[in-house]
Amino acid sequence: MFYDPRKGDHGLPHNPWTALVTPRPIGWVSSRSAAGVPNLAPYSFFNAAATHPPFVMLSSTPRKDSLSNIESTGVFAINIVGAELAEAMNRSSAPVPSDVDEFGLAGVKAGACRSIDAPCVAQSAVVIECILNRVISLSPKSGLPCDTHIVFGEVTGIEIADRVIRDGRVRSELIRPVSRLGYLDYAVTEQTFEIPRPGS
C-alpha cells in the first residue's frame, strides 16, 4: 500500500505511522513546575541526539505540562523505564490537571538529581539529567496545522545503577528497557547480540 500521510487516506482503522519507526525508546520525563509541583510523563518520541557532548531530544504533541515546566525552569531528567517500571510508567500517562503529582499517581519514589534542580525516579536504573538547550516548534511546508515542539536537552549528569554494569559495560539485558511499538504495544529488551563493525 501507499498513502500520503498529509491527506490521511491510509484506509486502515488505525493510523499506521506510529507502528513503522520502532522500537522507540521511552523518555520518562521528570520535571517540576515553577510553582514546585513534580511532574512525570512518558514520551515515546524520544532519543539521543548527539554524543560529544551528549544531547537528547523529545517531541511534545501538543504542548504538555512537561514542556511548560522545562521552559520555565530550564531543567529536566530522563528516567529509563525498565520492565519492572512499565505499569508505573503507564499510570503516569493519565491525563490529569497540572497540579497533580504524577510520582504519587505512578506509585514511584521521587529522588533528587545531582547536577540540576529537578526530581527523578529513584527506582530507575538510568537517569539522564539535562538543561534545556532549545525548543523548536515544527511548521509543515504543507501548511497543515501542527502543535508539535521538539525539545533539545544538553546532558549535565548521568546516574547509572551499579547493578546494570558488568565487566565495565552497561548491559541492556540487565536494564530490560521498555520500548514503544505501534499503537498500544510495547517490547522489553532482554536478549542482545553483538555484530563487530568491519575493520574493528
Rank of each mutant, 00 (worst) to 15 (best):
A50H: 15
M89L: 02
I80T: 15
P95W: 13
Y43Q: 01
L20P: 09
A187I: 06
Y183W: 12
N47I: 00
D147T: 12
D9N: 15
P42K: 05
P53E: 10
R197P: 01
S31N: 03
I158S: 04
R180M: 07
T51Y: 13
P13L: 09
S44D: 00
V29T: 13
A161T: 03
K141N: 09
I116K: 07
G82D: 11
E71A: 04
S66V: 07
V170C: 09
S115G: 05
F46K: 02
I128T: 04
L174A: 05
N133D: 15
A77L: 04
G182Y: 05
I70S: 01
D167E: 15
L181G: 06
S179Q: 10
L105F: 04
D4L: 01
G107V: 09
P145L: 06
A88M: 04
L138A: 11
H10W: 11
N39M: 01
I80Q: 07
A50M: 11
P95M: 11
A110C: 04
P54V: 14
T148K: 09
P13K: 08
L138P: 07
L144I: 09
S172K: 08
D162L: 03
Y183L: 10
F55T: 14
I195L: 15
A35E: 15
R163A: 15
V155C: 03
S142G: 14
P25D: 02
S68V: 13
T148G: 08
G157A: 08
V164T: 06
V108A: 06
E173S: 14
Y43G: 00
R134D: 13
